[in-house]
């Protein structure tokens, strides 16, 4: 009885949505960002609904599968796409498909049905295998050998390597992205972290496919809209979720200059420019300068595609990971997000 009541209450909660952006979606899908019935979350562990937006060819599909399996039960998946005939990774095989401009209604319905037990929670799509076989192996049956060797509980331990300050501690090789906050579509970072500092970095853009686009930027105001979408993403990264929602609402259509200026004022007062100063400097311009440029409604709206991935990778080396994320977010990297503006302006 009590359980049923809790489930009914849970069904009315704002839906925590994790969005995986694929090809042809541009930046943060504003339609999902400002609706009070939804709540965009930054980790799949916090979500009940996975919205896969756009195209997911090849490796991008594999990444979606991984994230899909990390959502806790009850979980459901929605494929929001303009191209139903495109590649369909395993995670999306049984997903409901939305092709219209506003998927919010479908997300809310899916969440309600999941909470009330009307539909079954999504099953896992990847095999239930550890990263490495370990059971029953090694000195203690947990896969480990000696002090540091083997694969205890399925993974090897990190090994030491040199560091710039003379303390050779462990290096962690990781592949991060593409579905991290602040990351442009399809971007993936192959990094080696020592402590929280990036020691080595290589940036890669996964294949985003081609076809019809989901985002519909207004050709006349495309630049301004893009800037606001970018701003929404950046504000979310900086812990200013409420301001991000405000920016997303403005980004829906061609924004009025007055409301844009009001938002810019709030952002300036938040201390965000100060927090970003000195981070990610390329050609004498730091993240703060890139932020301020976009805050100014009178600035020219043409956007260059931004620096090459190699140059960004060079800047990431030596920063701590939090700053690296800010750096990545601050650019219009030559992925889908820049392409969207260029397309809209063409």
């Amino acid at each position: 009885m009590a359980v049923a009541a809790v489930r009914r209450l849970a069904a009315t909660a704002p839906v925590p949505v994790f969005v995986a952006r694929g090809g042809g979606t541009g930046l943060l899908p504003v339609e999902l960002a400002f609706d009070a019935r939804l709540r965009l979350v930054v980790s799949p562990r916090h979500a009940t609904v996975l919205v896969a937006a756009g195209r997911f060819p090849g490796p991008l599909g594999v990444a979606v599968d991984r994230v899909h399996d990390q959502l806790p039960a009850p979980r459901g998946t929605l494929w929001w796409t303009a191209d139903v005939d495109g590649d369909r990774p395993a995670a999306l095989r049984d997903a409901s498909v939305v092709t219209d401009a506003d998927p919010v209604g479908s997300v809310v319905a899916l969440h309600r049905d999941l909470c009330l037990g009307r539909i079954r929670s999504d099953a896992a799509v990847l095999a239930d295998d550890p990263p490495n076989r370990f059971e029953g192996r090694g000195d203690h049956g947990q896969g480990g050998e000696g002090m540091m060797g083997g694969v205890p509980w399925g993974r090897p331990m990190a090994m030491t390597g040199d560091d710039r300050d003379g303390l050779a501690l462990d290096r962690l090789p990781v592949v991060l992205g593409p579905f991290l906050p602040g990351f442009p579509n399809g971007l993936r970072v192959h990094a080696v972290l020592q402590g929280d500092v990036v020691q080595e970095a290589k940036l890669e853009v996964l294949d985003l496919g081609s076809g019809p686009r989901l985002d519909r930027l207004d050709p006349a105001a495309g630049g301004a809209q893009h800037d606001l979408r970018w701003l929404a993403e950046a504000l979310r990264l900086a812990g200013l979720g409420a301001l991000a929602v405000r920016a997303a609402r403005l980004a829906r259509a061609a924004p009025a200059p007055a409301s844009r200026a009001a938002l810019a004022r709030l952002v300036r007062r938040s201390g965000l420019p100060a927090a970003w100063s000195g981070v990610g400097v390329i050609d004498g311009e730091d993240a703060r300068a890139r932020l301020v440029r976009r805050l100014d409604p009178s600035a020219p709206e043409g956007r260059s595609p931004g620096p090459s991935l190699e140059r960004v990778a060079e800047v990431l080396v030596g920063q701590d990971w939090s700053d690296a994320v800010v750096t990545i977010c601050s650019f219009d990297l030559p992925t889908d997000r820049a392409e969207a503006v260029i397309e809209a302006q063409a």
């Binding site: 000696g146 002090m147 540091m148 060797g149 090897p156 990190a158 090994m159 030491t160 390597g161 040199d162 050779a168 290096r171 090789p173 192959h190 080696v192 080595e200 970095a201 290589k202 940036l203 190699e310 990778a313 060079e314 080396v317």
Partner: peptide
């Protein structure tokens, strides 16, 4: 090391601290 090289995780990447 050229930046951006994905490292190998073999034990000889370190200074021999690995192992026992």
């Amino acid at each position: 090391y050229p930046t951006g090289v994905v490292p190998e995780t073999s034990t000889d990447g370190g200074d021999g601290h690995g192992g026992d």
